[in-house]
């Protein structure tokens, strides 16, 4: 008996020392990398520090949700880029969720054609790299749109051409007025518009991730016990009502955790914008600012911090939502 405690103590002790050593080794590695980087940067004469964020940017960004000119400081350019990233991410989450929900429910349809087409959508879009899909929309599909002289008028107020999708002006000046986009010398002017780069990313990312969401939705609904559907029907609810009132809330429990993962993947995939010309954070910061400011370490650190920050925030929020809808006692 005492021998047993002895071994346990020795083992515990050795575990303690092992961890000490490991900690030391890790620390040593971090110090080593830090020192090497420092000496490399010194050797190269590269300046360091975050003061560049307050310098004048001197470049223009085509889409900015907040006021921005070439005279604005670089941190404003960063804010513009972050907002552009988030705008794209929110649009993608919305469209992909709608698509995923529709197709996921379509998979369960009793109509053979609907079920098969839903499956075809899933298999088609899931098995093609998302970058290729984005390129297809950007370089092939959107390029086929007419030039601005012969734009497509979806309505008088919504104009589509190879320069983007133009929305009407909404003015709140004296009273409230909506006026259609106006044709200028080179393009439609004024009002808000979505650039083709945005459209390509939006469509590409949504279709790709929508396929994953549809699969999650399908298996979520299938995880709802058969008795629940029958019970709903027995209560005299219409199938649509059973779906909405009975099955959906239960399916949500199975859907939410994997859905979080897909949302996160989609958010991360917005960085593919750097491959076409949408000014989100990777494109503006790693592309333009890095070359202007010559501070690779700082620029990368800001970019990584942004992605890590948003990811942890989303994980935390979805975790809380998940906790709220989880059955007590489960």
């Amino acid at each position: 008996m005492s021998g047993d405690t002895l071994t346990r103590r020795v083992r515990k002790n050795s575990a303690f020392w092992l961890q000490c050593l490991l900690g030391l080794a890790l620390l040593a590695l971090v110090v080593l990398v830090f020192r090497t980087t420092q000496s490399n940067l010194e050797l190269l004469g590269v300046q360091s520090g975050f003061d560049f964020l307050w310098k004048k940017a001197g470049f223009s960004i085509s889409q900015h949700l907040i006021p921005y000119t070439e005279d604005s400081p670089i941190w404003t350019a960063l804010a513009v880029a972050i907002l552009n990233t988030l705008l794209l991410a929110v649009f993608c989450v919305l469209l992909a969720s709608i698509l995923g929900l529709a197709v996921g429910i379509g998979r369960l349809s009793s109509n053979w054609l609907v079920a098969r087409l839903s499956l075809a959508y899933l298999e088609l879009f899931r098995n093609i790299p998302v970058l290729l899909q984005i390129f297809f929309w950007y370089y092939v599909a959107l390029r086929a749109l007419p030039s601005f002289e012969s734009s497509i008028f979806i309505t008088d107020y919504l104009v589509l051409n190879n320069r983007g999708l133009y929305f009407p002006f909404i003015e709140f000046g004296n009273g409230f007025s909506i006026s259609p986009p106006v044709m200028g010398r080179f393009a439609y002017e004024g009002g808000f518009y979505l650039m083709p780069e945005f459209l390509a990313l939006w469509i590409g990312l949504s279709l790709y991730n929508g396929s994953y969401i549809s699969e999650i939705v399908r298996s979520g609904f299938q995880s709802v016990a058969r008795g629940q559907w029958e019970a709903g029907a027995a209560l005299g609810l219409k199938p649509a009502a059973v779906l909405r009132r009975v099955a959906f809330p239960q399916a949500l429990r199975a859907i939410l955790p994997p859905l979080t993962t897909v949302y996160m993947n989609m958010f991360k995939a917005t960085s593919l914008a750097a491959a076409i010309a949408y000014p989100e954070i990777v494109s503006v910061f790693v592309g333009t600012v890095n070359n202007l400011a010559g501070r690779p370490v700082e620029v990368m650190a800001v970019t990584l911090a942004f992605y890590a920050g948003v990811s942890f925030l989303v994980a935390w929020l979805m975790g809380r939502w998940n906790k709220r809808i989880t059955l007590r006692g489960q």
């Binding site: 960004i61 000119t69 010309a277 592309g287």
Partner: peptide, 25 residues
């Protein structure tokens, strides 16, 4: 992107108060 062209362009158009939109590749 990240070339002097991007900055020259901004400087030139700004100095002449000309409006333009830019797409950076």
């Amino acid at each position: 992107q990240g070339t002097t062209n991007e900055q020259n362009l901004a400087d030139y158009f700004r100095a002449r108060r000309m409006k333009y939109s830019i797409v950076t590749f």
